[in-house]
């Protein structure tokens, strides 16, 4: 074992040597998560909008999307591999499935939390069902919905690393390469590169969400 300082310098040197690959994999990771988050956000909000008024429907949707999360990611990737093949597709599909629950749940919660008096006054003014939903209810529920999307992003950044098992893109490659070389000098550096990369990507996403929250939430709701 070297003293700590030298370890860190060795590690930084290791990353520097592979800077192009690290950058490339990080961008892949960001793109992968962004695509999956966008898909689960759109689908999740839609499912929430369609079901929140009906107790049976919303319970069913939350139960179903909750069940997805109990499937071990490793198993789900392999399962999807049989259907859509290797590469990006199985990973994006699996991540989208994992991302649904927080979005659906927060959409439903957010919409149900809107003061019924606000909805009734909108109705009384002659706003149509659609206008009420899109102009009043959803914007008021938005901070809660956005929190759901943010939670799902945090979850997906981590799970996305495992996508490398089916040859998916992203920082998972470093981790799996490290696993394949256990007990060699580079193993720890490889795994560490993957982990640090994932953490940095997660922090970046969080910063983006903070900004997004500021830009898309009405001042009146803060």
């Amino acid at each position: 074992m070297h003293p700590g300082g030298a370890d860190i310098l060795d590690f930084l040197d290791f990353v520097w040597q592979r800077r192009e690959e690290v950058l490339q994999r990080s961008l892949e990771h960001v793109g992968l998560v962004a695509a999956a988050v966008a898909l689960s956000a759109v689908l999740g909000v839609l499912l929430g909008l369609l079901t929140y008024r009906n107790a049976t429907a919303r319970t069913a949707v939350i139960a179903a999307t909750g069940t997805f999360l109990t499937i071990p990611s490793f198993a789900l990737f392999v399962l999807l591999l049989g259907i859509v093949g290797l590469g990006t597709a199985p990973v994006v599909i699996a991540l989208t499935m994992y991302g649904l629950l927080p979005v659906v749940r927060n959409t439903v919660t957010g919409l149900l939390q809107v003061d019924p008096a606000i909805v009734e006054s909108a109705q009384g003014m002659g706003l149509s069902r659609r206008q009420r939903l899109l102009q009043i209810e959803l914007p008021i529920a938005w901070p809660v919905v956005l929190t759901g999307i943010r939670v799902s992003t945090v979850v997906l950044v981590g799970i996305a690393a495992i996508g490398a098992i089916v040859n998916g893109p992203g920082l998972g490659h470093f981790i799996f390469n490290g696993l394949a070389r256990v007990a060699t000098p580079v193993a720890v550096d490889l795994v560490l590169t993957g982990i640090v990369g994932v953490v940095i990507v997660a922090i970046l996403f969080d910063a983006v969400f903070t900004l997004l929250g500021k830009l898309t939430t009405s001042e009146g709701l803060r």
Binding site: D115, A117, I118, V119, E120, S121, A122, Q123, G124, M125, G126, L127, S128, I136, P139, I140, W142, S218, G220, L221
Partner: peptide, 23 residues
């Protein structure tokens, strides 16, 4: 049509129901 009708009728309730996200 209820929506058309309501646009001709002012409506004020006890809880007021102002839209919090709008000025």
């Amino acid at each position: 049509d209820p929506d058309q009708l309501r646009r001709r009728i002012g409506y004020v309730i006890q809880q007021i129901g102002l839209f919090p996200h709008r000025t």
